[in-house]
Amino acid sequence: MSTLLGHYNYWIVIVLMMTGFYTVIARPNLVKKIIGLFIFQTSVFILFISMAKVEGGTAPIIEEGYSLYSNPLPHVLILTAIVVGLATTALGLALVVRIQEAYGTTNEDDIHVQDETD
């Protein structure tokens, strides 16, 4: 039982990650792939933040009357990772827009067909 409660967060997070990962590799639509990457990355953020939590702790902003704080380091890492995620999303979507203009489609299978016949 304690394993269940102690790992509930992590297990759900893994399911979330795999949802995103599946979307990336299984879906032919390029926008959907980017959305999948977004879900994948966001779920990894939750993994990091979960490990930073201390039972009974509070946000790591020092104030009178509190002595137990959650771990600030994963928060810092994830702030950076969120920015990296935004950069990737923006570039990916920009590529999607250009691909749409060049091929007239955002479906991976259709693009392959067009490339083959070239």
Binding site: F40, V44, V96, A102
Partner: peptide, 19 residues
């Protein structure tokens, strides 16, 4: 134009790798 799809494929795989 295939440079775009090549870059996109690299982006997807590279991001999976980085994650």
């Amino acid at each position: 134009r295939r440079a775009l799809t090549a870059a996109f494929q690299y982006l997807v795989m590279g991001t999976i790798g980085a994650t």
